[in-house]
């Protein structure tokens, strides 16, 4: 599992706990990297777990960081809420080096968290987790009518969409007119 630290990215992470290696296998030291989200809580994650994220894996594959450098330079994901990043890190750790199961029942059921998770996972390019999340999103509307779906997912009707578009055009027109008037004033 990952270790998390409150505070700044420079805080020293806890030492990872590793499973005992078999006597025959040569001991290969596992490398660790550090990530933090909007809440600045730093998560220590093994390179093995991070392999799930194509984005991070692409970043670290040629870095050759030492432990110190990695600790000093956590990857900032300011766009991802801390609790969402925690979920992602936990999932990556749980599925490190394992084949992913066909179902994942531990994903959040709450609408807001799930959509945030979808966005984060898509951004971090974690293919399998995105598949689970999309399935979970689909499950949210199982057996629902169009009206219920519209309500659950806050989908505007076509009329609302058109009205919003009209309003936006109107506003843009006003702004453009204002800018023209200001430019004319400047010219005088």
């Amino acid at each position: 599992m990952s270790s998390t630290e409150q505070g700044t990215s420079s805080a020293a992470p806890a030492e990872p706990t590793t499973a005992p290696e078999s006597a025959a296998a040569p001991e290969v030291p596992e490398s660790f990297y550090y990530v933090h989200g909007k809440d600045k809580v730093v998560h220590k994650v093994s390179a093995g777990a991070l392999q799930h994220s194509a984005l991070i894996h692409g970043m670290i594959s040629n870095l050759g960081y030492t432990e110190e450098q990695a600790k000093a330079n956590p990857f900032p994901f300011e766009n991802i809420d801390g609790d969402i990043l925690q979920m992602v890190v936990d999932w990556c750790n749980q599925h490190k080096g394992k084949p992913t199961p066909p179902e994942d029942t531990n994903l959040p059921k709450q609408k807001e968290k799930l959509f945030d998770l979808v966005l984060a996972v898509n951004y971090l390019e974690i293919k399998e987790l995105l598949t689970y999340c999309c399935k979970q999103v689909a499950m949210m509307v199982k057996g629902k009518s169009p009206e219920e779906i519209r309500e659950i997912w806050m989908i505007p009707t076509d009329a609302e969409d058109e009205a919003a578009e009209k309003e936006a055009k109107k506003r843009a027109g006003k702004e453009a007119a204002g800018e023209t008037a200001a430019a004319a004033g400047d010219a005088k």
Partner: peptide, 16 residues
């Protein structure tokens, strides 16, 4: 990583 960042999203929903 900063460039990749998406805008902070609150009350995220299907339309996002």
């Amino acid at each position: 990583t900063e460039k990749f960042s998406i805008d902070p999203v609150y009350e995220t929903n299907w339309c996002d």
